[in-house]
Amino acid sequence: MSKHLYMRVSEVLEQRIADKTYPRDSLLPTEQELQQEFGVSRATIRNAMKMLVEKDLVHRVRGDGTYIKSAKTQHDALSHSGFTEEVEQQGGKASTRIISFQLQEADEYVAQKLDVVTGDQVYFIKRVRMINDVPEVLEHSYMPFALFPDLSVETIQNSKYQYVEHKLGHKIKHSREKVYAEGISAEDSKPLKLKSGTPTLCVEAIGVLEDGTIFDFAINRFSLKQYSFEYTSPRSTVIQQ
């Protein structure tokens, strides 16, 4: 078996996935069909397929075959787009399931994040964000009651950003984000259909309006089944040595 041979087969299959000769979510040809097409051994095809699995391009379903994975939605950390906007702009279907919506007093930690006084009334919102009906993000969010006295379950069923900008007329300046990995708790694992302790990517985000007012503090836990992160780091300073 030639290493270069199975790599070349893998490259051809990867190109077919990229140019949609094999559409997303479609079933790949069988190993036997690929053997006949490329004139290679079964071992060569299996090694080529292993490369595609390692690149997260396909997934195997026992007793059925190998399927092309759906393209992941990309999150641009430097843009001001919300979850709904990003997913829909990239051809996906975004939806939301509300788990909790309630008023409560801000504890010291939340008050510091929102720049309000401890004990002030804030909304606590817990919701699951889905891509194509698959749970992808669990969000714990806090918003000051004083800024949004008319906030409702119906409103947050959709995009908070659209509500803040389009309905209320505020202009969002930016979102400050902190990213870290963390094993998910037993309670939070259930909405995302994960096992307790599964590693997730956590993104703490503080939303800031044009006038500097903080309007939202959210902790988002991503399962990363259908989401990937993209960062662009500008070179703003040249260091002479």
Rank of each mutant, 00 (worst) to 15 (best):
Y161F: 12
S100M: 11
F215V: 06
T66F: 00
K160E: 15
R221V: 09
L194S: 08
Q90D: 07
R97C: 11
E230R: 06
P149G: 03
A94W: 11
A43R: 06
S159H: 04
V153R: 07
E54Y: 02
Y123M: 05
D133P: 02
M7Y: 11
Q104S: 06
A111T: 08
Q74L: 09
K126P: 03
T44E: 02
Q89G: 07
T155L: 13
T213A: 08
Q36K: 12
E54G: 02
T198M: 03
E88Q: 12
L5Y: 04
P135S: 06
P149L: 01
M143K: 02
I98F: 03
R46D: 08
Y161G: 09
S185V: 03
N220A: 13
G63K: 06
M51R: 10
K171T: 15
D188Q: 09
Q121N: 14
I172K: 02
F215Y: 15
R24D: 14
K93W: 10
T73M: 13
S189K: 05
L34M: 13
I68Q: 04
E11K: 10
E108R: 06
E177L: 13
M130P: 03
S41L: 00
S100G: 06
L209E: 12
Q15R: 14
E230M: 04
S41K: 00
L28I: 01
S2T: 13
E54S: 10
G207W: 08
V238M: 08
I131W: 04
R62D: 07
I214P: 00
I206F: 09
K171P: 05
G197H: 11
A43T: 13
N132S: 11
E33H: 01
L114D: 06
K173F: 12
Q90Y: 02
I68G: 09
Q104G: 05
S41W: 01
E139G: 04
H170D: 11
V116I: 14
D150G: 05
V58R: 03
N220D: 14
L13Y: 02
T155E: 13
Q240K: 09
S152P: 04
M1Y: 02
S79A: 13
S152D: 13
T200D: 05
A71N: 12
